[in-house]
Simulated assay, not measured.
Amino acid sequence: MTQPVPPSFKDVGKSVNDLLGKDIPIHGSTLEVKTRTPSGVTFKVLGVRDTKSGAISGDLEAKFEDRKNGFNLTQAWSTANVLRNHIELENHIAKGLKLELISSLLPDKQAKNVLVASTYKQPGLHTRQFLDLFKGPIFTADAVLGRDGFLAGAEASYDVKASKVSKYNLAAGFNAPEYAITLQGLGNLSTYSASYYHRVNADIEAGARATYDSKSAADGRVNLEVGSKVYLDNAAFVKAKINNLGVFCLGYTQALRPGVKASLGLALDTAKLASAESSAVAHKVGASLTFES
Protein backbone atom coordinates (compact mmCIF):
# COMPACT_ATOMS: atom_id res chain seq x y z
CA MET A 1 0.00 0.00 0.00
CA THR A 2 1.33 3.42 -0.97
CA GLN A 3 2.03 5.60 2.05
CA PRO A 4 0.61 9.15 2.07
CA VAL A 5 2.90 12.16 2.36
CA PRO A 6 3.16 13.00 6.08
CA PRO A 7 2.71 16.58 7.32
CA SER A 8 5.70 18.87 7.71
CA PHE A 9 7.28 19.16 11.15
CA LYS A 10 5.48 22.45 11.89
CA ASP A 11 2.13 20.83 10.98
CA VAL A 12 2.45 17.83 13.28
CA GLY A 13 -0.51 18.34 15.60
CA LYS A 14 -2.13 20.85 13.23
CA SER A 15 -5.65 19.48 13.79
CA VAL A 16 -5.71 20.27 17.50
CA ASN A 17 -3.76 23.52 17.00
CA ASP A 18 -6.40 24.76 14.55
CA LEU A 19 -9.21 23.61 16.82
CA LEU A 20 -7.84 25.48 19.85
CA GLY A 21 -6.28 28.46 18.08
CA LYS A 22 -8.30 29.50 15.04
CA ASP A 23 -11.64 31.32 14.65
CA ILE A 24 -11.65 32.73 18.20
CA PRO A 25 -10.59 36.37 17.69
CA ILE A 26 -10.08 37.76 21.20
CA HIS A 27 -7.08 40.08 20.81
CA GLY A 28 -8.60 42.73 18.58
CA SER A 29 -10.42 43.42 15.33
CA THR A 30 -9.33 42.05 11.96
CA LEU A 31 -10.43 42.89 8.44
CA GLU A 32 -9.18 40.77 5.53
CA VAL A 33 -10.01 41.23 1.86
CA LYS A 34 -8.91 38.74 -0.81
CA THR A 35 -9.52 39.16 -4.54
CA ARG A 36 -8.32 37.16 -7.53
CA THR A 37 -7.99 38.36 -11.12
CA PRO A 38 -8.60 36.20 -14.22
CA SER A 39 -4.85 36.30 -14.96
CA GLY A 40 -4.02 34.47 -11.73
CA VAL A 41 -2.97 37.39 -9.50
CA THR A 42 -4.30 37.35 -5.94
CA PHE A 43 -4.46 40.51 -3.83
CA LYS A 44 -4.84 40.44 -0.06
CA VAL A 45 -5.31 43.39 2.28
CA LEU A 46 -5.12 42.71 6.02
CA GLY A 47 -5.84 45.21 8.77
CA VAL A 48 -5.51 44.47 12.49
CA ARG A 49 -6.35 46.61 15.52
CA ASP A 50 -4.84 45.37 18.78
CA THR A 51 -7.22 45.85 21.70
CA LYS A 52 -4.52 46.11 24.37
CA SER A 53 -2.32 48.73 22.71
CA GLY A 54 -4.83 50.28 20.34
CA ALA A 55 -2.25 50.04 17.55
CA ILE A 56 -3.47 49.49 13.98
CA SER A 57 -1.28 47.57 11.54
CA GLY A 58 -1.83 46.60 7.94
CA ASP A 59 -0.44 44.47 5.18
CA LEU A 60 -0.83 44.63 1.40
CA GLU A 61 0.09 41.49 -0.52
CA ALA A 62 0.06 40.49 -4.19
CA LYS A 63 0.64 36.92 -5.34
CA PHE A 64 1.10 35.62 -8.87
CA GLU A 65 0.55 31.89 -9.39
CA ASP A 66 1.56 29.90 -12.45
CA ARG A 67 0.42 26.44 -11.41
CA LYS A 68 1.16 24.91 -14.79
CA ASN A 69 4.87 25.72 -14.48
CA GLY A 70 5.07 25.48 -10.69
CA PHE A 71 6.04 29.14 -10.14
CA ASN A 72 4.73 31.54 -7.47
CA LEU A 73 5.78 35.11 -6.74
CA THR A 74 4.52 36.95 -3.64
CA GLN A 75 5.29 40.57 -2.79
CA ALA A 76 4.05 42.37 0.32
CA TRP A 77 4.35 45.76 1.99
CA SER A 78 3.32 46.40 5.60
CA THR A 79 2.52 49.56 7.54
CA ALA A 80 5.78 48.95 9.46
CA ASN A 81 7.46 49.69 6.09
CA VAL A 82 8.70 46.12 5.67
CA LEU A 83 9.03 44.90 2.08
CA ARG A 84 8.77 41.13 1.58
CA ASN A 85 9.40 38.96 -1.47
CA HIS A 86 8.78 35.24 -1.78
CA ILE A 87 9.70 33.19 -4.87
CA GLU A 88 8.66 29.52 -5.15
CA LEU A 89 9.67 26.93 -7.76
CA GLU A 90 8.02 23.52 -7.49
CA ASN A 91 8.70 20.23 -9.33
CA HIS A 92 11.38 21.77 -11.59
CA ILE A 93 14.51 19.82 -10.65
CA ALA A 94 12.75 16.76 -9.24
CA LYS A 95 9.19 15.71 -8.54
CA GLY A 96 8.20 16.66 -5.00
CA LEU A 97 10.96 19.25 -4.64
CA LYS A 98 10.13 22.91 -3.97
CA LEU A 99 12.74 25.68 -3.84
CA GLU A 100 12.06 29.03 -2.15
CA LEU A 101 13.76 32.39 -1.80
CA ILE A 102 12.33 34.62 0.94
CA SER A 103 13.63 38.12 1.53
CA SER A 104 12.62 41.09 3.67
CA LEU A 105 13.84 44.69 3.70
CA LEU A 106 13.30 47.52 6.18
CA PRO A 107 14.48 50.62 4.24
CA ASP A 108 14.41 53.01 7.22
CA LYS A 109 16.93 50.96 9.18
CA GLN A 110 18.64 49.37 6.18
CA ALA A 111 17.88 46.00 7.77
CA LYS A 112 17.53 43.01 5.48
CA ASN A 113 17.18 39.27 5.67
CA VAL A 114 17.35 36.47 3.11
CA LEU A 115 16.14 32.91 3.64
CA VAL A 116 16.85 30.11 1.16
CA ALA A 117 14.57 27.11 1.63
CA SER A 118 13.78 23.75 0.08
CA THR A 119 11.06 21.18 0.69
CA TYR A 120 11.07 17.58 -0.49
CA LYS A 121 7.96 15.42 -0.26
CA GLN A 122 7.51 11.76 -1.12
CA PRO A 123 5.19 9.02 0.18
CA GLY A 124 6.20 8.48 3.80
CA LEU A 125 8.67 11.39 3.89
CA HIS A 126 8.49 15.17 4.31
CA THR A 127 11.71 17.17 4.74
CA ARG A 128 12.48 20.90 4.83
CA GLN A 129 15.75 22.85 4.88
CA PHE A 130 16.33 26.55 5.58
CA LEU A 131 19.45 28.69 5.37
CA ASP A 132 19.20 32.10 7.06
CA LEU A 133 22.01 34.04 5.40
CA PHE A 134 22.10 37.16 7.61
CA LYS A 135 21.45 35.59 11.01
CA GLY A 136 24.37 33.39 11.89
CA PRO A 137 24.20 32.11 9.14
CA ILE A 138 21.86 29.53 10.64
CA PHE A 139 20.98 26.27 8.89
CA THR A 140 17.75 24.56 9.97
CA ALA A 141 16.49 21.17 8.83
CA ASP A 142 13.54 19.03 9.80
CA ALA A 143 12.11 15.73 8.66
CA VAL A 144 8.99 13.69 9.32
CA LEU A 145 8.66 9.98 8.55
CA GLY A 146 5.23 8.39 8.27
CA ARG A 147 4.02 4.83 7.96
CA ASP A 148 0.53 3.39 8.51
CA GLY A 149 -0.51 6.54 10.38
CA PHE A 150 2.50 6.62 12.71
CA LEU A 151 4.65 9.78 12.57
CA ALA A 152 8.16 10.52 13.83
CA GLY A 153 9.92 13.84 13.29
CA ALA A 154 12.90 15.92 14.34
CA GLU A 155 14.13 19.48 13.82
CA ALA A 156 17.55 21.01 14.44
CA SER A 157 19.30 24.34 13.80
CA TYR A 158 23.04 24.85 13.44
CA ASP A 159 24.67 28.25 13.96
CA VAL A 160 27.55 28.34 11.47
CA LYS A 161 29.30 31.34 13.07
CA ALA A 162 29.13 29.94 16.61
CA SER A 163 29.76 26.36 15.40
CA LYS A 164 27.05 24.87 17.59
CA VAL A 165 23.58 23.38 17.47
CA SER A 166 21.29 26.22 18.57
CA LYS A 167 17.93 24.41 18.54
CA TYR A 168 16.55 20.89 18.52
CA ASN A 169 13.00 19.52 18.79
CA LEU A 170 11.32 16.12 18.50
CA ALA A 171 7.79 14.98 17.66
CA ALA A 172 5.84 11.74 17.35
CA GLY A 173 2.22 10.94 16.70
CA PHE A 174 -0.48 8.87 15.12
CA ASN A 175 -2.97 10.15 12.54
CA ALA A 176 -6.20 8.35 11.71
CA PRO A 177 -9.17 9.65 9.69
CA GLU A 178 -11.22 10.33 12.86
CA TYR A 179 -8.54 11.17 15.44
CA ALA A 180 -4.92 12.17 15.97
CA ILE A 181 -2.47 11.90 18.87
CA THR A 182 0.70 14.00 19.06
CA LEU A 183 3.67 14.12 21.46
CA GLN A 184 6.24 16.93 21.13
CA GLY A 185 9.45 17.96 22.85
CA LEU A 186 10.17 21.61 21.98
CA GLY A 187 12.53 24.38 23.09
CA ASN A 188 15.58 22.11 23.14
CA LEU A 189 13.41 19.52 24.89
CA SER A 190 12.55 21.92 27.72
CA THR A 191 8.84 22.02 26.87
CA TYR A 192 6.73 18.89 26.43
CA SER A 193 3.31 18.76 24.87
CA ALA A 194 0.73 16.02 24.39
CA SER A 195 -2.42 16.60 22.36
CA TYR A 196 -5.46 14.68 21.21
CA TYR A 197 -7.93 15.49 18.42
CA HIS A 198 -11.17 13.63 17.70
CA ARG A 199 -13.71 14.18 14.93
CA VAL A 200 -16.69 12.76 16.77
CA ASN A 201 -18.96 13.01 13.74
CA ALA A 202 -19.56 15.31 10.78
CA ASP A 203 -20.80 18.09 13.08
CA ILE A 204 -18.63 17.83 16.21
CA GLU A 205 -14.86 18.04 16.81
CA ALA A 206 -13.10 17.87 20.17
CA GLY A 207 -9.52 18.10 21.37
CA ALA A 208 -7.20 18.70 24.28
CA ARG A 209 -3.58 19.72 24.83
CA ALA A 210 -1.39 19.39 27.92
CA THR A 211 1.89 21.35 28.11
CA TYR A 212 4.71 21.20 30.64
CA ASP A 213 7.47 23.85 30.55
CA SER A 214 10.39 22.76 32.72
CA LYS A 215 11.83 26.30 32.76
CA SER A 216 8.76 28.16 34.00
CA ALA A 217 6.76 25.50 35.84
CA ALA A 218 8.59 25.69 39.17
CA ASP A 219 5.60 24.18 40.94
CA GLY A 220 5.40 21.30 38.48
CA ARG A 221 2.10 22.53 37.04
CA VAL A 222 0.94 21.17 33.71
CA ASN A 223 -1.11 23.56 31.58
CA LEU A 224 -4.24 21.95 30.15
CA GLU A 225 -6.54 23.25 27.42
CA VAL A 226 -9.74 21.57 26.23
CA GLY A 227 -11.94 22.66 23.35
CA SER A 228 -14.67 21.68 20.92
CA LYS A 229 -16.23 22.81 17.65
CA VAL A 230 -19.87 22.33 16.74
CA TYR A 231 -21.36 23.02 13.31
CA LEU A 232 -24.80 24.58 13.66
CA ASP A 233 -25.50 24.28 9.93
CA ASN A 234 -23.61 24.52 6.65
CA ALA A 235 -22.90 28.22 7.21
CA ALA A 236 -22.14 28.55 10.93
CA PHE A 237 -20.20 26.93 13.75
CA VAL A 238 -19.40 27.58 17.40
CA LYS A 239 -16.10 26.98 19.21
CA ALA A 240 -15.54 26.79 22.95
CA LYS A 241 -12.41 26.13 25.00
CA ILE A 242 -11.21 26.43 28.58
CA ASN A 243 -7.85 26.04 30.29
CA ASN A 244 -6.78 25.07 33.80
CA LEU A 245 -6.39 28.76 34.76
CA GLY A 246 -10.13 29.24 34.30
CA VAL A 247 -10.00 31.27 31.08
CA PHE A 248 -13.05 30.39 28.99
CA CYS A 249 -13.14 31.34 25.30
CA LEU A 250 -16.10 31.28 22.95
CA GLY A 251 -16.09 31.87 19.20
CA TYR A 252 -18.89 32.12 16.66
CA THR A 253 -18.30 32.08 12.89
CA GLN A 254 -20.99 32.76 10.30
CA ALA A 255 -20.78 32.70 6.52
CA LEU A 256 -22.92 35.73 5.64
CA ARG A 257 -22.86 34.95 1.94
CA PRO A 258 -20.44 33.20 -0.46
CA GLY A 259 -17.03 34.75 0.13
CA VAL A 260 -18.01 36.73 3.23
CA LYS A 261 -17.29 35.34 6.70
CA ALA A 262 -17.58 36.97 10.11
CA SER A 263 -16.20 35.73 13.43
CA LEU A 264 -16.80 36.96 16.98
CA GLY A 265 -14.67 36.02 19.98
CA LEU A 266 -15.06 36.33 23.74
CA ALA A 267 -12.63 35.42 26.53
CA LEU A 268 -13.72 35.36 30.17
CA ASP A 269 -11.43 34.85 33.13
CA THR A 270 -13.83 32.91 35.32
CA ALA A 271 -11.59 33.41 38.35
CA LYS A 272 -12.15 37.19 38.14
CA LEU A 273 -15.82 37.44 37.24
CA ALA A 274 -16.57 39.20 40.53
CA SER A 275 -13.67 41.65 40.25
CA ALA A 276 -14.86 44.90 38.66
CA GLU A 277 -11.40 46.48 38.74
CA SER A 278 -9.72 43.78 36.70
CA SER A 279 -12.59 43.00 34.33
CA ALA A 280 -11.19 45.17 31.53
CA VAL A 281 -7.90 43.30 31.68
CA ALA A 282 -9.21 39.83 32.43
CA HIS A 283 -11.96 39.71 29.80
CA LYS A 284 -11.42 40.21 26.08
CA VAL A 285 -13.57 40.54 22.99
CA GLY A 286 -12.69 40.64 19.32
CA ALA A 287 -14.04 40.26 15.81
CA SER A 288 -12.86 39.45 12.32
CA LEU A 289 -14.42 39.96 8.91
CA THR A 290 -13.16 38.26 5.75
CA PHE A 291 -14.12 39.04 2.14
CA GLU A 292 -12.96 36.70 -0.61
CA SER A 293 -13.75 36.69 -4.30
Rank of each mutant, 00 (worst) to 15 (best):
V165E: 08
Y168V: 09
N169C: 12
N169M: 03
L170S: 01
A171P: 00
A171C: 14
A172Q: 05
F174Q: 10
N175L: 14
A176K: 15
A176N: 11
A176V: 01
A176P: 03
E178Q: 15
E178F: 09
Y179E: 04
Y179V: 03
L183A: 15
G185P: 01
G185A: 15
L186E: 11
G187A: 15
L189Y: 11
S190K: 15
T191E: 11
Y192C: 09
A194Y: 13
Y196N: 00
Y196T: 08
Y197T: 04
H198G: 00
A202C: 08
E205W: 08
A208Y: 11
R209A: 14
A210G: 11
T211L: 12
D213K: 01
S214V: 06
K215E: 13
K215P: 05
A217F: 02
G220R: 08
G220Q: 06
G220N: 05
V222C: 06
V222P: 08
N223C: 11
E225T: 15
E225P: 02
E225W: 02
V226F: 14
V226R: 01
V226K: 02
V226Y: 00
V226L: 15
G227R: 06
S228H: 10
K229T: 03
V230D: 04
V230Q: 02
Y231P: 02
L232Y: 00
D233T: 01
D233Q: 07
F237H: 05
F237Y: 11
V238E: 01
V238F: 06
I242E: 02
N243A: 04
F248K: 09
F248Q: 03
F248H: 06
C249F: 09
L250P: 01
L250Q: 08
G251A: 00
Y252W: 11
Q254E: 12
A255I: 09
L256Q: 10
R257Y: 11
R257M: 13
K261P: 02
K261Y: 06
A262K: 08
L266D: 02
L266E: 01
L266Y: 06
D269R: 01
D269S: 09
D269F: 00
A271F: 07
K272A: 06
K272D: 01
A274N: 13
A274M: 10
S275L: 07
S275N: 10
A276W: 07
A276F: 00
S278H: 07
V281T: 10
V281Q: 10
A282H: 04
H283E: 06
